[in-house]
Amino acid sequence: MEEQKEFVKCIGQLSGHTDKIWSVSWHPTLDIFATCSSDKTIKIWGLKENSENQYELKQTITDTHERTIRTLAFSPDGKMLACGSFDSTISIYALNNGLFEFISKLEGHEHEVKCVAWDSEGKFLASCSRDKTVWVWDYENGFDFSCYSVIDAHSQDVKHVKWIPGTNNLASTSFDDKLKLWEQEDDDWKCSATYSNHTATVWCVEFSKAGQYMASCGDDKQIKVYKKNENGAFSSPYIVETTIKNAHARTIYSLSFNEDATFLASVGADNTLNVYQKNMYVTTFEGQDNNLYELLEKKVNCHFADINCVAFHPSKDILVTVSDDRQIKMWSLKINL
């Protein structure tokens, strides 16, 4: 019997959190990643000495939030970490002698903070909340954060916010089932596109590193992959290229592209990790439906509960998943040639 090929392999499991883990973010250069949890802690995990892909706990940050810590992200220069909490505040940590130290608390949101995101230029931090707004914070003077703009973004909770790579423009998703793009105009952001092609809450929007692809997912169990619109005659900056219906059996919470967009990973409330590979034969023949991404492997029930977040390593083909089962799992990927 021919042995079935395994392209996605579990290479490690990390325990330590004592409640649901909501989010994971990789440091841009140091081969460390951070996780946050309803146990109100942030944990930093790093590569073990003399090991290629085994990680261990390096630091635990406690006592900075009173409720669930929902989201976190490292700044593009790797010097700062931002975390958002259901206590409606954002905390900022700075790297000092190998440890992240608390430096600042950003207050202003009226309800739970759901997502934080740094722009790639090192100018802005964006945050979004159940209060329906997206805030843009400016930190041009080093660690001194101030509110730069408040965007009345959606008619319901804003679930996710991301910067469009290489631009000062934003993308946001919401409980109002919409995905919106925002273009900077002077000191403000105006809506440049509204996508209503999801039929339920949109939980996540992600971009490939070079910005050529955008992807979204949510309660309707669909993944949509969009291509950057190079044709100026159309108003939408991104156009839907592929819709993957019933990608998961329950809500899809998170997506991640690897560095060169060869892979797209998705996770959700069906305890499952999907890894898609970019179709190498995307020439579209008439009457032939070629998906931009094809399923490479499905890891069914690879956690014991909802998987809340997935994130690709910034340079290696390694993935991390975090779950309500309080576990972190590491995965290595092989391309299917």
Partner: peptide, 15 residues
């Protein structure tokens, strides 16, 4: 239905 089955909303409510 939408609100009571949104896990973020439920978690935030019980906190």
């Amino acid at each position: 239905n939408k609100q009571i089955n949104d896990k973020e909303r439920v978690m935030a409510a019980i906190e």
